[in-house]
């Protein structure tokens, strides 16, 4: 079986400084991987490089998506192929109604895949259904993208997009940051509802807390640009008890 996402010995630099020093990770369909680690260990860099954010220089290794070279694709091609990044800090786009944004983006992806364009009524039906399941009021969809949204609303908007775009790999970058416990639960429920056999998730987080709600199949500990330990979900609990310090030396 071809892995869904395969990161092999990835080396990445930002402005002359190497951030990832040979990172490997294999994600199969249906799996949920958690990536944990202290600040500056390279977690967000990994998510950005997979999604294709400019400003990172890949100096070694490769990333394969269903066996295809992901690094050769532009970020929008990756999105159309099914790579989704839920941002830690979703941006605001004033004047662009959320609904319009979702519609345009979904159709752009469908077009790239050679699928038909969704008409406005078709799209609205789909969007309202997805919004209802996430407790997102219709009024919020009329507002500018993330403009004046609370932290919880921004994250729910990310998950709404995940639900609409139906990606193959979802990377959730620090989804828990800035959320209180209730908002966290709502967001996590949304994510869990999207778990499926064909879809994989990579959950990036500092804290074990999030993993109480989104229970991973695998946990990887990152330190100084490498995966230093991998294990099952119990590894997260172990970390919560003993902290990251024990891995700092190992790296």
């Amino acid at each position: 079986m071809t892995a869904l996402l395969e990161v092999k010995d990835l080396k990445v630099r930002v402005e002359e400084r190497e951030i990832l020093h040979g990172l490997s990770l294999t994600v199969n369909p249906g799996e949920v991987h958690a990536i944990m680690g202290p600040n500056g260990s390279g977690k967000s860099t990994l998510s950005h490089v997979i999604a294709g954010k400019p400003g990172y220089e890949v100096t070694g290794g490769e990333i394969l998506f269903r066996g295809e070279d992901l690094l050769e694709m532009s970020p929008d091609e990756r999105a159309a192929k099914g790579v989704f990044l839920a941002f830690q800090y979703p941006v605001e786009i004033p004047g662009v109604a959320t609904m319009n944004f979702l519609h345009v983006a979904l159709n752009a992806q469908r077009k790239a895949r050679g699928e038909s364009q969704l008409t406005t009524p078709e799209f609205l039906k789909k969007a309202y259904a997805a919004a209802a399941s996430l407790n997102i009021p219709r009024d919020m969809l009329k507002r500018g993208v993330n403009v004046g949204f609370s932290g919880g609303e921004k994250k729910r908007n990310e998950i709404l997009q995940m639900a609409l775009f139906e990606p193959a790999v979802c990377i959730l970058d620090e989804m828990d940051s800035g959320l209180d416990i209730d908002a966290l639960r709502v967001a996590a429920d949304g994510v869990n509802a999207l778990r499926s056999q064909g879809r994989a998730m990579v959950v990036i987080t500092h804290y074990q807390r999030l993993l109480n709600y989104i229970v991973p199949d695998f946990v990887h500990v990152m330190s100084k640009g490498r995966v230093v330990k991998s294990g099952g979900k119990e590894l997260a609990l172990e970390l919560e008890a003993s902290g990251y310090a024990q891995f700092e030396d190992a790296a």
Binding site: A51, K53, P75, L85, V96, F101, A108
Partner: peptide
């Protein structure tokens, strides 16, 4: 750059992204 990247991550091309942001503006 962050706004443009957000848009292209959602599947818009760079040009569509600029058009969208400007039309919002």
């Amino acid at each position: 750059e962050d706004v443009l990247f957000y848009c292209v991550q959602r599947g818009l091309s760079q040009e569509e992204a600029v058009g969208l942001v400007v039309n919002g503006f």
